[in-house]
């Protein structure tokens, strides 16, 4: 048996290895090319998208000065007036309110899960929080209409305006609950899970040796978290917040259902607003016979894209500046 095998071995090796080797190399080459092409396609999506938007928005960009588009408050498509300022401010107001509501509790939740919660609690809580991120946004919108809007209309707005009505931030002639605050609350609930999930990972990634060093000096958990863990983790935590911010800026359906959709610059958290996303989703495909209307809506999309990209770049630059070199 052994002798036969020895005698055959050159043949076996030749039959097995030469074609096999070539096949292996070919598969390796193609796998690499295929995956590389997919990666390239994904990376190219952003510039392609931006280019397409510029082309489609070009008629209005060429016909109106940029300053008028960005800073005029007159939105009268039938009269040919396209001022995006109310929509830009609507997006910024709703997003700002959402982040103010969402960031502190989600960071504290992330810290609790990473630093305090026993393993068993974390094992239950983490999947539930991730599930929250998977709920379709229209469900959040319905929840906002059925719960948040009436609560603001009946309780929150009267209470706040009764005590702090003189403060411009809270003064409003909008009696419905539909407005910036409702949009902010709904958005806040939507960005909680993504901020929590990323921030928790980042906090957990801080090496245990660093925690031990602080605890072994007699520091309490909270002192350790505040002075050591968060100091180390904060660039990553900031990235988690930026992720939430990007999601809040782009969220459409849930916001559209509760913000009131009035093309006016909001001056208070109880005023109605009309974010860019809602403008596009509500109007695209309708009244397309109005001259320049189609181009105007795509210009709105372009502005939104630029705001998101701008926030991302700005925050990344700030992070790079503030992160000490290793």
């Amino acid at each position: 048996m052994q002798a036969i095998r020895t005698w055959l071995s050159p043949l076996i090796r030749a039959r097995r290895s030469a074609p096999r080797q070539a096949g292996r190399r070919r598969r390796e080459r193609w796998a690499r090319r295929f995956m590389g092409a997919l990666t390239l396609g994904t990376v190219l999506l952003v510039p392609l998208l931006a280019a397409a938007l510029v082309v489609r928005a070009w008629p209005i960009l060429a016909a109106r000065p940029l300053s008028e588009l960005l800073f005029s408050t007159d939105w009268h498509p039938l009269k040919g007036q396209f001022g995006f300022y109310p929509f830009i401010m609507g997006t910024l107001w709703v997003t700002a309110v959402a982040m103010i509501i969402a960031v502190p509790p989600s960071l504290l939740t992330a810290i609790f899960l990473a630093e305090y919660a026993p393993e068993r609690l974390r094992a239950v809580a983490k999947p539930l929080i991730d599930l929250l991120a998977g709920i379709p946004s229209v469900v959040y919108g319905v929840w906002g209409m059925l719960t948040v809007v009436p609560a603001i209309e009946r309780y929150i707005a009267p209470a706040v305006q009764g005590s702090l009505g003189a403060v411009p931030l809270f003064r409003s002639d909008n009696p419905t609950g539909y407005g910036v605050l409702a949009g902010g609350v709904v958005l806040a609930v939507m960005v909680f899970p993504s901020i929590i999930a990323v921030a928790e990972e980042v906090v957990r990634a801080v090496p245990d040796g660093l925690r031990d060093a602080s605890l072994a000096l007699g520091a309490t958990r909270w002192q350790t978290v505040r002075n050591v863990v968060m100091r180390r983790a904060w660039p990553g935590v900031a990235a988690a917040v930026i992720l939430g911010l990007s999601r809040a800026l782009g969220e459409t359906m849930a916001v559209l259902m509760v913000v009131g959709n009035m093309p006016r610059v909001p001056g208070s958290i109880f005023d109605a607003a009309y974010p860019l996303t809602a403008l596009i989703a509500n109007n695209y495909g309708e009244m397309m016979s109005i001259p320049l209307y189609d181009a105007a809506l795509l210009a709105a999309a372009l502005i939104l894209l630029l705001i998101v990209v701008g926030f991302n770049i700005a925050s990344r630059l700030v992070l790079i500046r503030l992160t000490p070199a290793k």
Binding site: G209, A213, A216, A219, R231, R232, P324
Partner: peptide, 30 residues
């Protein structure tokens, strides 16, 4: 209080993410 009376030196150095001065002052400050 136990850990204030019983100090510790780990196998690998873990400097706290702060200055040299603040590292030494840390225990006093907390």
């Amino acid at each position: 209080e136990v850990r204030t009376r019983v100090g510790m030196l780990a196998p690998k150095p873990f400097p706290l993410p702060m200055s040299i001065y603040d590292n030494v002052a840390y225990g006093r400050r907390i």
